[in-house]
Design a protein around this nucleic acid. Sequence first.
DNA 1: TTGTACGCGTTATCAT
DNA 2: ATGATAACGCGTACAA
Lengths: 333, 333
Amino acid sequence: MSVSIREVAKIAKVSIATVSRVVNNSAAVKEETKKKVLEAIEETRYQPNAIARSLKVSKTHTIGVIIPNIANQFVPGVVRGIEDCASEHGYTIMVCNGDGNDQKEKQYLQILYEKRMDGIIFMSHMISDQVAHKIYSLNIPMVFINTYDPEKKYPRVGINDTKAAYDAVAYLLQQGHKKIAMIGGFPKDPIASRPRWNGYKKALEQFGVPYDEDLITWGNFSAEEGYRLVHEYYVKRNMIPTAMFCASDTIAIGAMRAWQEIGYRIPEDISVVGFDNISLSPFLMPPLTTVAQPFYHMGESSMRLLLSQIHGEKIKKKNIVVPHQLILRKSSK
Amino acid sequence: MSVSIREVAKIAKVSIATVSRVVNNSAAVKEETKKKVLEAIEETRYQPNAIARSLKVSKTHTIGVIIPNIANQFVPGVVRGIEDCASEHGYTIMVCNGDGNDQKEKQYLQILYEKRMDGIIFMSHMISDQVAHKIYSLNIPMVFINTYDPEKKYPRVGINDTKAAYDAVAYLLQQGHKKIAMIGGFPKDPIASRPRWNGYKKALEQFGVPYDEDLITWGNFSAEEGYRLVHEYYVKRNMIPTAMFCASDTIAIGAMRAWQEIGYRIPEDISVVGFDNISLSPFLMPPLTTVAQPFYHMGESSMRLLLSQIHGEKIKKKNIVVPHQLILRKSSK
DNA sequence: TTGTACGCGTTATCAT
DNA sequence: ATGATAACGCGTACAA
C-alpha cells in the first residue's frame, strides 16, 4: 500500500518524530536534516494519512452537510457558499440528501457522527421531534439553515420570511392591486409557508384590503403545482386575480405558463411575483419579479457560524437573519 | 469526549474484543454476554468511532466527488445520482468544486487522497496534463464523467456528444432549415464543444448543406454569452439564421431572450434548440426543444463503476456511453 | 535540535 | 466463547 512516516524516517535516518515535525512544520528542524527528510519524502512518494492524524488529534477537518435535496433549485447555491468558506479554512464537506425525511435525516446524523465530523450544517423545512432528539444526543457543533431546532440551542440562519412576503405583497398593493392571489407551499410548513402567509395577510391588513381565504391555495413549491392550481382552481372557479404572489419561483414559472397558455398577458392582465430568485428567473418571459434570497451568503455565514463554534467561541445571536431583496422585473406592474 | 470501546468493556466486564464482536456481529457471542454488552453500550451511549475503524481496516467508505461547480445547472442532478447509489451501498460522499481550475483540482485530489477516499469520481470538461499527472500518481479507483483521462486507464461515462449534436441538427435540417447558426462552448474543449461541433458539421454534410464558418460562434455555456452573441454578432452583422443550435440550454435561454427582445418570434421566425434539458427548459416561453442528457443516470452509473473497481473487479468497457434524447418542444419548427 | 515511547479507538490473530 | 495483545499511522510529552 502507501508508505508510512516510518519508512521515511528509516530512509532519512531520523526518527519518525522528526519527519512529523517537517511534515507539519510543528517545530524547528535543522535545515540539513530537513533536507534529508524532504528527499526521503520525495523518494518514497510519502503522502500523509489524514485518517491516522484525525484519530490522533480528534479532528477530521470535515463537516457534514444535510440538505433536503441537492437537486433542488436553490440548494446548490447554499452548498457552494458552504464549500467555499469551508475549503478556505481547510475543511472539506460531506453532503447528504435528507429529502425532508425523518428516517433518512436521523440515519445521516448518526453516520456523520460516527465519522466524527467536526460539525454539521442542517438545512430543512421543519424538524421533527425524533430528529430533534437525535440532534441533542449528539452534542457537537451545529447550525441550522431555515429551520430551527425546538430548543433553539443552536444558531439558525435565514431570511425574515414574514417581512419578505410582506414586502412583495405591499409592493403589489402599492401598485393598486386589490385582488391578490397566493400560492403557498405546504400549509403546515412552519418555516417557509406560514411566515410568508402571515406576511401576505399583514400587508393586506396594513393597506386595508380585506383578506379573502378563497384567494389562497397550497401546492408543494413545484412548477407543476403552480401550473395545475391556476388551471384547476383559479380558472375553473373563474377567480381571476389581478396579481399573484407565489411562495417560490418554481411555482411562479408554472403559474405564468398556465396563464399565458389561456391567453392572459403578464403583466398586462396579471402581475406575478415569485420568491427565491433562482438563477433563471431573469431569463424567463417575462423576466420574473421576485424576492431574492441570498443563498450563497446563507451557506457562507452558516459555515462561519459553525467554525466559531468549532473554535469554542460562544455564539450570542441565535437567529441570524440575512437580507432579502425585492427584485422588480417585468412580470409585474 | 465520547466513550470508547474500552469503557464499554469495563462496564460489561468483558474484553474489548468481545465488545467489538457484538458491535460488528463479527463472531458468535453467547446470548447472555451479548446482552450485558448491549446494556453497557446503552448505558454509556457508546458510538463507534469510524475514524479508528478506518485506520484499522484501511477503508473509509467515503468517496470523493470533484465536479466543476455544484451551482451549475446540471451538476446537482449528477451528484444526486451519485449520492443515492453511494448511500445505498453504505458510502458517503465528499464533494469538491474544482471550477475547471487545474490548481484547485490538483489540490482537491491531494486532499481526497490524504483523507483516504475509497475512490474518486471526477467530472470536468477537460483534464490538463498536470491534473492527469496527479491522477496517475494516486493510483486509486476512479471514474470520469464527460472527460477522459489521457491514457484512458480509467472508465468514463457520458453521452455520445457527436451523435447527440448530429441528431439535433439533422432534425433541423429535416424541417427544411438551411441557415443554421451554432453557439458552442469553449472552442478548445475536447469533450463537449468539439464533438458537438463535429456532429453539427456531419449533419450538414449528410444533408448536402454547405458549411459556413461565419454561422459559428463560441461562448462559455452561459446565458449571458448566448444573449450577448446574438446581439453583438448575429444581429450586428445582420446574419439572421432560420435556426440556431446551442451547445447548452443556458446559452439557448439567453439567445431566445435576445431574439425576442428585438422582435423575432420563436419558433415562427427562428427555431432554437438547446442541449442538456435542464429542469426549467419545459417552462420557458416557448418551451425549449433540446437534447436531454440523463444526468441522474450518469451519476448513478459512474458510482456503480467505481464500486466495482473498489471491489476489485476488472472493468472491461472503458467508455460507457449513456443514451441522449432529442426532446421536441415549442421552440422549433 | 533530536529521539523514545505512549496513546488515539479499532480490528484481527492468536491463545485459552 | 472469550481474552490478551499486536498492529493501523500518526502527534506529542518528555527526555536527552
